[in-house]
Design a protein around this nucleic acid. Structure first.
Lengths: 192, 192
DNA sequence: GTCTATACCTGGATAGAC
DNA sequence: GTCTATCCAGGTATAGAC
């Protein structure tokens, strides 16, 4: 797979996370890369094609991360921690995440792209749910709702945490991140 | 203030919440209203002007709601409940909120509009923080983090809850909403 | 206050040369 | 694989008539 193609994918993803899907153009990509608009269309005939490719790449990246963590025998605490580190990194770079960015524009996306977005979010939620459930049964986590509800709750906090941090203060995300851990960390005698 | 102007504001806000700020045009407004593009420009010379007006309107609406709740002597539980009802309504209508929508596009907004967005979110967070703090001291709420962190956490869950519900299932928001209440509701003997 | 008409630009996309 | 050149649609915005 060509390096130019890779670079375009990377740049386009960054643009979605900083300017939004409807806020960037092929020109944004071509000027940064020092090539012409037509060259970008050579790799990705349409913007929809580009957007769908980015989602497919992200799904694949996610699957690889999960597989990798299993190969290393990460326990559920380490797994969830790794996942949350992705969000800490995004916050440092003043980016939001694909879920929040494309979620805003969902009604303007083509059906294939919307389907890919749903697939990505579905995978993430299912994985997080399973990790929380398994972690709880091992005593690594403690929480009251169903694992699925807790997964949705955590993902929500992460997704909008990035958005709020970009509007208010970057440092606010650290507190949100911290609050998630306190919510699921078991304490011998949790005081309420 | 003219009824046409009001209607444009209302429609434009709805478009931001369904298609995103960079995903709607003056045409979307004029066709629905049965007027021409130029008529919309008569009321709002530029799109930035329209966007800023929407934010100012929302800030005012929020202030009025807070004032109204104080006049009715709502306790903090009722106040937070009223606030969260706004989000329940948005979810029913398949909308996200201004914070999530404009948060995605923040880097493409003009400086005045960005400032207004920050002002709006700042007000909301400050109000929620104060309500949580006062409610906790009265025993209406129970939570461990600082009131500000708890406010950010709740607002995050609401903002992204709408986004996730629109991507996955509408009914998911109910669970997220429920989880927030369980998080701050005091129990005599909370089991963990 | 709303219209017609139009100017101007940007964005997505394609054809065909190199 | 990248270029030039170009097309077309749509979006923002304005001038001036009614």
């Amino acid at each position: 797979m060509s390096v130019t193609r890779e670079k375009i994918l990377e740049l386009a993803e960054e643009l979605i996370l900083t300017k939004g899907y409807n806020g960037f153009s092929y020109q944004d990509i071509s000027t940064v890369m020092g090539i012409k608009n037509a060259a970008v269309h050579y790799y990705f005939p349409s913007k929809e094609n580009l957007g769908t490719s980015i989602l497919k790449t992200n799904i694949q990246r996610f699957e690889e991360m999960v597989e990798n963590m299993q190969n290393r025998n990460f326990d559920e605490h380490q797994q969830v921690e790794s996942f949350m580190k992705i969000y800490l990194k995004s916050n440092r770079e003043n980016k939001i995440c694909l879920i929040g960015s494309l979620g805003t524009d969902i009604n303007t996306l083509s059906e294939p792209m919307r389907a890919e977005l749903q697939k990505m979010v579905g995978r993430i939620v299912n994985w997080l749910e399973a990790a929380l459930e398994a972690g709880r049964s091992k005593g690594l986590f403690s929480f009251q709702p169903s694992a699925r509800d807790q997964a949705l709750h955590i993902l929500s906090a992460l997704v909008a945490g990035l958005q709020l941090a970009r509007i208010l203060n970057k440092s606010d995300f650290k507190n949100i991140h911290q609050a998630i851990w306190e919510e699921i960390t078991p304490h011998a005698n949790k005081q309420l």
